[in-house]
Amino acid sequence: MESELQKAGKDQKLMEREVAVGKERVDTPVRDVTTSFKAPRRWGETIIQGLLFLCGIVSIFTTVGIVYVLGHESWLFFGKPDVSIFEFLTGTVWQPSIGLFGIMSLVNSTLLTSAIAMLVAIPLGLGAAIYLSEYADQRIRKVLKPVLEILAGVPTVVYGYFALTFMTPILRGLFGKDTVEIYNVASAGIVMGIMIIPLVSSLSEDALSSVPRGLREASYGLGATKLETALQVILPAALSGIIAAIILAVSRAIGETMIVAIAAGAGPKPAFFLNPFQAAETMTGHIARISGGDLSYNTVQYNSIFAIGMTLFVITLLLNVLSRRIVARFREEYE
């Protein structure tokens, strides 16, 4: 009995304790008894996210920086007494020493080198793309493609060297030393074209191989040869992607600096000339030459290269955006 009483007492005590615990729980919740399903705030995570966001923002600062720098220095340039924005855009002579700043002659040279580069890069790049995507079997592709891509990895200064010491002598041998100057647009343009081949070919090949297989099969089924299929079915179907690739290539050619700086030559030229065997100075070539010397800050010349840079930036940006727009539309068609 006693023991039972004792037991009961114990139970009583236990119960009281439990009640007490319960009470305690109601009054002040103990943290390691309750399970909270809300994750605690981790400041480390927030800080990391913040840092990563800052990394992402750096690129915005870069763009802002570019626009600010080009805009600010161009503003100073156009603020000089002997410079007007109208003359800058329409003038045909670029000769800072006598205060003539007409960008048209530089633009003319740039367009000429780029056009020659495109004459080389479009047919060859497109031909290579068609061969690799439509004709070559897996084994040949595996060899040819990386080799072509090496071309894209060669530094441009090496291409400049190649243009001057290899292409120019060949051109001078072919057309005569009297017609072809040592520094000439053709040599720079051709070598630039070679440099751009991989860009055109790899982007075009992507476009070609994303044309649905069904189109090829249908064409073969109708009795078309491989060439007819490639040129009349696949090529039109991939046209938007190919055009986008070409626009990107043009933008690349316009912005290319070292090849023209080394091989295309310098010196003032009249605008609207088409002779590819003459020396000419492009926008990028001029910037490189002027800033290569001891360029003192805050002179008209210093500011002028930023105005050229602004022109260059706007042209290439427009081309890149255009190219991306075309690709975006092209994607919608097939996916």
Binding site: G255, T316, V321
Partner: peptide
């Protein structure tokens, strides 16, 4: 979206423009 578009555009800016940025900044 702005960051992404911006990065894509930056990839196409001619290298000499970066040089001008570096010179000025």
């Amino acid at each position: 979206k702005v960051i992404q578009a911006n990065i894509n555009n930056l990839a196409g800016v001619p290298s000499i423009i970066y040089g001008m940025l570096g010179l000025a900044i």
